[in-house]
Every structure is written in structure tokens, then in C-alpha cells.
Measured scan of single mutants.
Amino acid sequence: MLDDRARMEAAKKEKVEQILAEFQLQEEDLKKVMRRMQKEMDRGLRLETHEEASVKMLPTYVRSTPEGSEVGDFLSLDLGGTNFRVMLVKVGEGEEGQWSVKTKHQMYSIPEDAMTGTAEMLFDYISECISDFLDKHQMKHKKLPLGFTFSFPVRHEDIDKGILLNWTKGFKASGAEGNNVVGLLRDAIKRRGDFEMDVVAMVNDTVATMISCYYEDHQCEVGMIVGTGCNACYMEEMQNVELVEGDEGRMCVNTEWGAFGDSGELDEFLLEYDRLVDESSANPGQQLYEKLIGGKYMGELVRLVLLRLVDENLLFHGEASEQLRTRGAFETRFVSQVESDTGDRKQIYNILSTLGLRPSTTDCDIVRRACESVSTRAAHMCSAGLAGVINRMRESRSEDVMRITVGVDGSVYKLHPSFKERFHASVRRLTPSCEITFIESEEGSGRGAALVSAVACKKACMLGQ
């Protein structure tokens, strides 16, 4: 009897593995994704193909990295998701002549009506938060230079001027797309009239992360975010950046690689679950690469896999709870928690219980395998993109072996128990001629924006502006 049951459990697990095998990517698959990513990057950089390229390769006008001589107080704003952060950054000489960066910050959550109302409502709310922060720190009387981390696709015309191309991540505030974001912020500050600010720089969160990590390690020339969304930036040779005049030196390019796949480059790798996630998203047909990796989508992918296993009578005796059938019910943090389970399955059992399920031991094991399959594919897909960037940098610099540091931020990278190990191992397999160091950014977005502002202020002083 026991043997029969054991055989049935083994057969069930084997069927589960057959279904989950769809998520496995072979090294040849990853090399294919990497080569296609490089081709799209090239198209994004070139003037004649930029418009139709899915990977936009947006110039950021960040050319210099901090040298350690900029000092002063800077205000930093960070808008990239449902939370908005205001930070005071003091850049100065530390002990023994070292450079020191001290920060104080406060988080504000953005109400739904500000995210989806008008641009005026959104930026009025942001300036209200700045006003509140300055009151708390008794700094209303000071006109501070301000660095703005704005983590949406922007076409820069200068370091302090950028046109919002399109909202992502659930934002829909009308009247912002096609307009200068810094102008919208300046107008809102003017409307309030109770404080003055000098907006000197606007950067993407990947750029802010790279600059913040450069402060720790001067070989950091790539910034990457794996959180709600997924994106990367890197220092490109100016001669390859056709959208900006000049051939000397390097400029940081914001790849906006989340949109890779929007022209069909990933079609052969998309599964039924991916198509369902895409169809029910706020932007169907867009940001397809990001939807395979980002935390906004990972939990939902797992939920759809679990429903398939229920329908195949391989999980929960073929019956799903009402909660499990509800879109968004299986949160991405559950994926991390399930994979963090120590082996007694308590954590998995508790999560499934909150979803109205009474799982068996085998159910718990199957749910864990589903989570591992989805998150491992995410790590491997992400590795193909980064390997594409790094191999490109090595080739354009004609280096036999390139040493490089990548600064990384984002909740999936930082909080998932195995993502970074799987990701690092896969990147290294795909970049055999590179020695890569990964560092995690601390308060990256805010500190990085302030350091970019410090560079901009120093330049302005040198130019006598």
C-alpha cells in the first residue's frame, strides 16, 4: 500500500517536472537572447534605426563620474514606483581627507489618484512632500541643488532636461508624456511658492545606482535594477552614441532593455503563462523582457503555473481556492519566502493557508518547484541581457580580458534567497573573457542622484555659470 502511494507521488512529481521543464533555458538559448539583445542595442544607438529599435539606448548626458572633490548639501528625489523618497545628502571631506556622503531620508507613498490623475496632481503632491521634508529638517530658507531620480523612459536633451516617452509600472498621470519632466517639477514648486529649489540633474535609477557604486569602486561602469521592473545602464564610447554629437570619451546610456521583445525577438521563448500575464497587464505587448524578470510579474506567473497544475490534477487534489483564482493573489514576496523555507515546509504551508488552501507535504514541495522554475528562468533571462552589455563593452574597448564592476539594486536581487547566485553564475558562463565584480548599492537611487548633481554643480562652477 505504502509502495503504491510512494509510486503515485513519484509519478505525480515526474509529471510536474515535465510541465515545469518549459521554463528551462539551455545555454544556447541564452546565447541567442544575448546576441539578439546586442543587435537591438546597436539599432538603438544608431541614428537611422533608433526610432524602430525596441531597446532605445537613451543617452543620459552623464559623462563624468564623481571624483571626490564636490562638497555641499544636496536634496535628492526618487520616483520610480508607488513609494517616493526625499533625501538630504551631505557631501563633504571625511576623516583623513576621505570623501564622505551622509544621508537623511523619508519615504512617502503615492496615492492612487496622483498616479493615475493628471501630471499637475502628481507633481503638486511631490512638491508637497518636499515642503514637508524641508519643514522637518528646518531647511526651507536654503535654496538647495536638487537631483531627481526618475525611473521611467526619458529622452534627455541635457542633464536637466528630459522628455517622458511613456509611463510604465502602473503610472498613468495624463499630460506628462511628451513633456519635460524637470519643467513639470519646477512648475509645481513655483505653484507652491513656499520654498526654492535648483533642479540641476535628472537621472534614471540605473544611472543613480551606477554612480553610487562608483563611489565604492571606481571600476563600476554598469548599473542595473532588478526590482519591480528590470533595466540597466553602462558607459558607452561616445563615438557609438549617434544621437549625441561628439566622439570623445564616454557617456552613460540608459538601455531601457525592459522593452526588448516588443518587436518579436522573444516570441519563441514566451510561454502561455507569459501571454496571460501580458494580456492582463496595463501595457499589453510592451516591456516583454521586463515581464519575464521583474517583481511586478513574478508572483503572478507562479500563480498561473499553480492553476495549470491544479487543472492537471497534480496539486491540491485538483481544487483551487477562490483566493488562488484571484489575479495578483500570489505576491512576489511569497516566491522569495517559499524558496527561503528551511525544509520543514512550515513557511510554505503558512503562505498557502493564507490563500485558503490546506496543502499536503507533496503540495508544498511542488509549489516550491514552481517558484524555483519561474525565478530561475528570470535570473537566466536577466543574465543574457547583462552578458550582452558586458561583452559589447569588452569588444568596443578591444580588451582581451576586461575587469568590470556592476552596481545592482532592486528588491528581487536583494531579497530573493537564490536569485543573485543563479544570476551571477549564468552571467559568468556567458562572459568567459571578463572578470566581473557585483556590488549592491546602498540607498543607491538617492545618493547617486545627489552625486550626479554634485558633478553638475562642479561643472557649472568651472564653466562660470
Score class of each variant (00 low, 15 high):
R422P: 15
M197K: 00
T103S: 07
G94N: 06
L463V: 10
T437M: 10
L352E: 02
A378C: 11
E112L: 10
M393W: 09
Y234C: 04
S69E: 14
A460N: 09
R345V: 09
S69A: 14
K161M: 13
H137F: 09
L134N: 06
M402N: 10
V200I: 05
L165Q: 06
V427A: 06
M462V: 10
Y349I: 02
D278E: 11
I189V: 04
M381H: 12
E27V: 07
M37Q: 01
F316R: 03
S336T: 00
C434W: 04
S263C: 11
N283W: 14
D217A: 08
Y234A: 00
H105G: 06
N240I: 01
M462C: 07
G448R: 10
K13S: 15
G249D: 01
G328A: 14
D365W: 07
P432H: 15
Q26A: 06
V253G: 00
R7P: 12
K291M: 11
P153H: 07
K291H: 09
Y108C: 07
W257L: 10
V101Q: 04
E70C: 06
L184F: 11
E268A: 08
S411L: 06
E237R: 05
L276F: 15
T118V: 12
E312A: 12
K104Y: 11
I439Y: 04
M238G: 02
V91G: 04
T149S: 11
R5D: 08
D160I: 14
R428H: 10
G147W: 02
R85G: 08
A320P: 15
Q18W: 11
Y108A: 02
E421T: 13
F316L: 14
D311L: 14
A53V: 04
L144D: 08
H218K: 07
N240W: 01
T209S: 03
T405K: 05
S353V: 05
M121H: 15
R325N: 09
E95S: 11
E421Y: 14
L324S: 06
Q286L: 14
G183D: 06
S131E: 07
E300G: 02
D42H: 10
H156G: 13
S54N: 10
G356W: 01
L88T: 03
L357S: 07
S373K: 05
C364Y: 03
Q26T: 14
A387L: 01
G388H: 05
G72F: 00
G343I: 01
